[in-house]
Amino acid sequence: MNRSVLILPLIVILIAAALSSIFIVDEREKALVLRFGRVVQIKEDPGIGFRIPVMDQVISYDDRIISIDMEAQEVIPNDDRRLIIDAFARYRISDVEQFRQATGAGGDAAIAMADNRLEQILRDKTREVLGSVSSGDILSTDRTALMLRIRNGAISEAASLGLTVIDVRLKRTDLPTENLAETFRRMVSEREREAEDERARGREAAQRIRAQADRTVIELESDAERLARIAEGEADAERNAIFANAFGQDQEFFQFYRSLEAYRGALQEGNTRLVLSPDNEFFDYLRSPSGAAVAQ
């Protein structure tokens, strides 16, 4: 019985020692096993791990993606228009041993320290990248290239902390309150200048169109006048040919017809006076058979 009394506590002690040597790593965590402050084991895969009780200490770190909201900061692009930038980043602990050396702590304290140091890195890179472009590029909807430059610039420095920067996003980009009125005035001036440029180009195009239209009208009128003169000449030639043919067939009738045309043109209604001698040949067809001119 005395032997049973001694064995039972020993069994309990062995069971307790065995249980204390086992630790479990969750799928959301990574773990370091420290022996007197020195890393002796890194457990990155989920499952059961073993340690030496009393001598070894297990420290767990979050293996999930961690978000960090940076405080709003003022940046000055290369066109000297100040902007207020509000951004956030996402990162992950990629090297727990390096992370332990950089922070010297575990748990929430290590995360808070990493957040502070990473935020300073990101703030410096944000000022560096956004200071090299214009405010128009920053305020545009397509800022993917700028965010990639900030992230890529922070990756190497974040690696010294055992961190991997996954993404950087600009949430808001605003103008300082005191600069809004001046900025709006400048934007209005720029829009007015662009509108005046458009109107000037429109006036220039209108002048070109009017000049082209005037030239086309002149060309059309000249061509029409030329064709009219040609037609008129051809008509005169045909008329003369007809007259000549008529004259050849009946000279007396032709002279009579021409005299009637002359009378029609000379003797108009109204106060028409002719000062001619009575025996002028103009009156040949106006005389009576007795030789006297017909009274009008």
Rank of each mutant, 00 (worst) to 15 (best):
R3F: 12
V5Q: 15
L6Y: 10
I7W: 04
I7M: 04
I7E: 02
L8N: 03
L10S: 08
I11H: 02
I13H: 03
L14C: 12
I15M: 14
I15W: 04
A16C: 10
A17M: 09
L19T: 05
I22V: 14
V25D: 01
E27S: 12
E27Q: 09
E29Y: 09
A31D: 04
L34V: 05
R35C: 03
G37M: 07
R38G: 04
R38N: 13
V39R: 08
Q41A: 10
I42G: 00
K43E: 06
D45T: 14
G47L: 08
I48V: 15
P53D: 03
D62V: 00
D63W: 10
R64W: 03
I65P: 03
D69M: 03
M70K: 08
E71R: 14
P77T: 02
R81T: 15
L83R: 04
I84E: 12
I85W: 14
D86V: 06
D86Y: 10
F88N: 15
S94N: 06
V96P: 04
V96N: 01
V96W: 06
G104R: 01
G104M: 04
A109F: 14
A110H: 06
A114D: 05
D115S: 13
E119P: 00
Q120T: 14
I121Y: 00
I121P: 03
L122F: 07
D124M: 06
T126D: 03
T126L: 02
T126E: 08
T126N: 02
V129C: 03
V133E: 04
G136L: 06
I138K: 01
T141M: 06
D142Y: 10
T144M: 08
N152L: 06
A154R: 04
I155P: 01
A158T: 07
A158S: 11
A159D: 13
A159H: 10
L163M: 05
I166H: 13
L175Q: 05
L175F: 09
T177A: 11
T177N: 07
T177C: 01
A181R: 03
E182S: 15
F184D: 09
R186H: 07
A205M: 05
A205G: 08
A206N: 05
I209V: 07
R210A: 13
A211C: 00
A213T: 02
D214H: 05
D214N: 12
E219Q: 13
L220N: 11
S222G: 13
D223L: 11
R226C: 00
R226A: 09
R229H: 07
E232R: 10
G233A: 13
A235H: 11
A237G: 09
A237Y: 09
F243Q: 05
A244H: 07
A246C: 00
G248H: 11
D250N: 15
Q251N: 07
F253E: 15
E261L: 04
R264H: 11
V275Q: 00
P278L: 00
D279E: 12
L286Y: 12
S290A: 15
A292R: 15
A295Q: 13
Q296H: 10
